Computed example of a mutant assay.
Amino acid sequence: MNRQLRCTVIVPTYNRVNLLRHTLDSLVGQDLPREDFEVIVADDGSSDGTRALVDSYQDRLTLRYRFQQDKGFRVAAARNMGLRDARAAVSVFVDSGVLLGSGALAAHCAAHEASAGPVAVIGYVWGFADDAQAAAESIDPGDPDGTIRRLAREGRFPDVREWYYDRYGEQLWKLAAPWLVYWTCNASANTAQARAVGLFDEAFQSWGGEDVDLAYRLHRGGATFLLSRDAAGIHHPHPKEDIRSAKANHHYFAAKYDTPITRLRPDHDIFLIEEEIRTRGLLPDHLEPALERKF
């Protein structure tokens, strides 16, 4: 009898062969046995040798490669290739260029397996920094665990959401809008629920917002949001996308659902929306009806 997979790791990529190598190396180094997880690299049309790199890991990972033609920024569609093909009950979303600590996948799986219902797990991500060079110099791609321990000891480059956790607490299931900080650089979801709520919205065809949009639907569908500091990773610096495109996506998100809470997204700091919801008395339990559960 084949061993049942505990999670599917979905890694979208586009012409980031060197960053993808770091991510795959970190997956090879997981405490979770190779037989317990699979990796799907979802290629958004790369032309830099990504396929050859992925093939070189076939003897070290249970690995599949999916490709779509380069028709612009289509990361939502790329992730959907992985979600549709996922064979495990848990899908872990990891960006190319994120190096997972050795215990990250085990921590994601444990959080899901300890819950009676669907959960959405937010991993911890070190290394976000305005000074990309300083952050890069602090990261040893060959030793994610050592890098995480050093950054924690020195108090350098913590997850940018640390301020949010300090302000509102880490019991995310008590918050009105925990979906705002569900970022697919390192996060996981119940595979069946992610499919049932409609996968990633492929109308997002520029950078920013498609992960929060999925998270919003997971939340309305009954998912419990959890922070797992043990599901830790490192964001390796890379050239930034044009973040101006995110503004249009925020307006699209607000209009798509058109609720008192979603209408706050375009014009408010993402970390202050929770406070705005409380100040205005916007209670999502009656303003935003739950989605029908189909999983």
Rank of each mutant, 00 (worst) to 15 (best):
Thr147Leu: 15
Phe37Leu: 08
Asn2Ser: 15
Gly233Ser: 12
Glu275Asn: 05
Ala78Thr: 04
Arg280Ile: 05
Val39His: 03
Val11Trp: 04
Ser138Lys: 12
Thr23Glu: 01
Leu27Gly: 02
Ile261Phe: 04
Pro260Val: 03
Phe271Tyr: 13
Thr259Asn: 02
Lys247Ser: 09
Asp258Leu: 05
Asn186Ile: 09
Ile273Phe: 07
Tyr165Lys: 07
Val94Ser: 06
Ile277Tyr: 03
Ser206Gly: 09
Ile261Gly: 02
Arg265Glu: 06
Leu27Asp: 04
Arg217His: 11
Arg21Cys: 04
Ala52Thr: 06
Arg244Asp: 15
Leu264Met: 12
His286Ala: 00
Phe67Gln: 10
Arg167Ala: 14
Arg51Gly: 02
Ala223Glu: 04
Ala254Met: 06
Ser102Pro: 00
Asn186Val: 06
Ala136Asn: 01
Glu274Phe: 08
Pro260Thr: 01
Ala88Ser: 07
Asp166His: 08
Ala104Leu: 13
Gly103Pro: 05
Ile277Asn: 03
Leu226Cys: 14
Thr50Glu: 06
Arg6Ile: 01
Ala152Gln: 15
Val125Leu: 15
Asp267Pro: 07
Ala132Tyr: 00
Arg6Trp: 02
Lys256Ile: 01
Asp59Cys: 08
Arg16Thr: 07
Gln68Cys: 02
Arg150Glu: 09
Val28Tyr: 06
Leu100Lys: 10
Ile234Gly: 01
Trp183Pro: 00
His268Gly: 05
Gly49Cys: 08
Asp145Thr: 06
Glu170Pro: 09
Thr23Leu: 03
Gly117Tyr: 00
Ser138Ala: 15
Arg60Asp: 02
His250Lys: 12
Val181Thr: 10
Thr224Glu: 15
Thr147Phe: 13
Ser102Gln: 03
Lys174Phe: 02
Tyr182His: 13
Val17Ser: 07
Ala76Trp: 02
Gly72Asp: 01
Phe225Tyr: 04
Ala152Trp: 11
Glu38Ser: 12
Leu19His: 14
Val90His: 09
Leu282Phe: 05
Thr147Ile: 14
Leu227Met: 12
Ala187Asp: 01
Arg195Cys: 09
Cys109Gln: 06
Leu5Asn: 11
His286Trp: 14
Asp242Ala: 13
Leu83Thr: 00
Leu291Val: 09
Cys109Trp: 00
Arg278Tyr: 00
Ala246Thr: 12
Ser96Pro: 05
Tyr65Ala: 07
Ser96Cys: 12
Ile277Ala: 08
Tyr182Leu: 11
Arg21Thr: 05
Thr147Ser: 13
Arg263Val: 03
Gln193Asn: 05
Ile40Leu: 15
Arg21Pro: 01
His219Met: 15
Lys294Glu: 09
Asp285Tyr: 11
Ile277Gly: 02
Thr224Trp: 07
Ser46Gln: 08
His235Thr: 01
Phe200Met: 13
Pro33Leu: 11
Arg195Gln: 12
Asp25His: 11
Gly198Tyr: 11
Gln68Val: 05
Ala177Phe: 00
Asp140Gln: 12
Gly72Val: 05
Ala77Ser: 12
Glu276Ser: 05
Ile261Met: 13
Thr191Phe: 11
Ala254Arg: 03
Gln68Lys: 14
Val94Thr: 10
Ala78Tyr: 04
